[in-house]
């Protein structure tokens, strides 16, 4: 088989994922696009492993590792997105702009503003998750209101 096929497929898949990472607003969609990019890399690894006839099967082993790492990454990533969503009431990454350069010279009050923003968002979050997440929600809400 011509090596250019998997290589070109990997490139195009990668660039589609790239577009997704750059253009999507929802953080979970961005994570999906990242998965696409990882898969593109995996295709490359497998294709070149087969092409080189590597006795160690380094490419395939690495692909397995990548898949495992991608699973871990998606777990951590989703946890982070959930946390952000719980704190902000939104998982749109173009609204997570606390690190932007504010016009006021002192950066102190922007942190305070985000903290002030936090509690109503979390309150709505609690309402939404009250059914599924009772055990966790109770103490956390109590702590927050205290």
């Amino acid at each position: 088989m011509h090596l250019a096929y998997p290589a070109v497929l990997a490139v195009l898949l990668f660039c589609v994922g790239l577009y997704g990472v750059l253009a999507r607003r929802n953080a979970i969609l961005v994570l999906m696009a990242v998965e696409l990019m990882l898969n593109a890399v995996n295709i490359n690894l497998v294709a070149f492993d087969v092409w080189l006839r590597d006795t160690l099967h380094a490419g395939q082993a690495l692909t397995l590792f990548t898949i495992a790492i991608a699973a871990a990454e998606i777990g951590i990533g989703l946890a982070i997105v959930l946390l952000v969503h719980r704190n902000r009431g939104s998982s749109d990454i173009d609204r997570l702009r606390d690190l932007r350069e504010s016009d006021s010279p002192s950066g102190g009050d922007s942190g305070g503003g985000s903290r002030a923003e936090k509690s109503p968002a979390s309150a709505t979050d609690n309402d939404a998750e009250s059914g599924s997440d009772q055990q966790v929600q109770g103490p956390a809400a109590g702590r927050r209101h205290a």
């Binding site: 989703l78 946390l83 103490p139 809400a141 702590r143």
Partner: peptide
């Protein structure tokens, strides 16, 4: 990653869980 995901998913400050629960 597993531990990290659990830690992240937990509501923060669960160390003072019993008093929080009573308050709740």
């Amino acid at each position: 990653a597993l531990v990290g995901a659990i830690v992240l998913s937990r509501r923060d400050g669960d160390r003072d869980l019993p008093p929080a629960r009573t308050r709740a």
